[in-house]
């Protein structure tokens, strides 16, 4: 039997259980995974939750014969170094694909070099080529503000920006563009190119992590590398985070990752320094000694170790 052109609600379908609807999609699974694997980042999770909710509601609306248009999903991620902008963008393609907003779920990650050409007439084909590759998926433009160089009026970046804007507007169904960068510079970029600000529906600000969140991130990173802190090590690392934050060039989770790498080196070195046999436990434990050796604890030091 042919389906009617305008779907009418089935008898008795005047009220719909949205939670049952949610269970039928993969959405809940995606959201759970996000909660499990990303520490903190409340604004990001809220926004993804909203997008997911809209998807479920749209499914129901379509079934009831109401219009359900795909929303604009272009995003901009701003925040300090190491707050997880790139990490989230990489997962966004997968999330949007599972939510059914994009058709293929691949991510094309580019910077200025991939979009802007070197001579007249080189930029447009280059940008278009990248856009074509990204269609059906997500185009991630890292450090997007480099596209615009106000100090050089003959810079080809402007041409790339114009093509981007045009495709973002006309091919909304084919491609999602995510811009990422440090907050202050992105602000300047958007002020200089007002067309972007209005075409990007989701401006998400990545907050700095709290000490407790950084601790959780550190432990998660160690776990994925098959290491763990002993009690003393954990306490020392908590002190380390508090001390490191006050020093210059603090880059949130990235600083934590670097610190952990150095601690692993010290731990390895310690095992060489002490003669004797090592056990499995020795190989996987980071102790207070490994943490406290850091130059961060030396108050006179201005440079991170």
């Amino acid at each position: 039997m042919a389906e009617p052109l305008t779907p009418v609600p089935a008898p008795g379908e005047t009220a719909i259980d949205l939670h049952k609807e949610l269970a039928e999609t993969q959405v809940a699974e995606v959201l759970d995974e996000l909660d499990r694997e990303l520490v903190g980042l409340a604004p990001v999770k809220t926004r993804i939750r909203e997008i997911a909710a809209l998807l479920v509601v749209d499914r129901v609306r379509r079934r009831m014969g109401l219009t359900a248009e795909t929303p604009t999903l272009h995003m901009s991620f701003t925040g300090n170094p190491g707050t997880g902008k790139t990490t989230v963008a990489l997962r966004m393609a997968e999330i949007l694909y599972k939510l059914g907003y994009i058709r293929r779920g691949h991510l094309v990650s580019v910077t200025r070099d991939d979009l802007v050409g070197q001579y007249i007439g080189h930029t447009a084909p280059k940008t278009k080529e990248v856009l074509k590759k990204a269609m059906g998926g997500v185009l991630f433009i890292d450090e997007a503000y480099y596209l615009y160089r106000p100090e050089n009026e003959r810079d080809y970046g402007q041409e790339a920006i114009e093509i981007l804007l045009q495709v973002m507007e006309n091919q909304r169904d084919d491609l999602v563009v995510i811009f990422a960068g440090y907050a202050d510079r992105m602000d300047k970029f958007f002020r200089a190119n007002p067309g972007f600000r209005s075409r990007i529906a989701h401006h998400i600000d990545f907050p700095d992590y709290t000490d407790a969140e950084l601790m959780a991130i550190g432990e998660m990173m160690l776990k994925s590398l098959s290491y763990h802190f002993d009690a003393g090590g954990a306490a020392a690392f908590r002190d380390y985070i508090a001390a490191r934050r006050k020093q210059p060039h603090f880059a949130n989770a990235r600083s934590i990752r670097n610190a952990l790498d150095r601690m692993r080196m010290r731990q390895a070195n310690r095992h060489f320094a002490h003669p004797g046999l090592v056990t499995l436990d020795d190989l996987t434990t980071i102790t207070a000694e490994d943490v406290r050796a850091s130059r961060v604890f030396n108050q006179d030091a201005t440079k991170p170790d």
């Binding site: 058709r103 080529e129 074509k132 590759k133 269609m135 059906g136 998926g137 091919q171």
Partner: peptide, 15 residues
């Protein structure tokens, strides 16, 4: 235009 070697979706071809 050029052969579309790295394209994942039919949209750019249709364009």
């Amino acid at each position: 235009s050029l052969p579309a070697f790295d394209v994942k979706d039919a949209a750019p071809i249709m364009l």
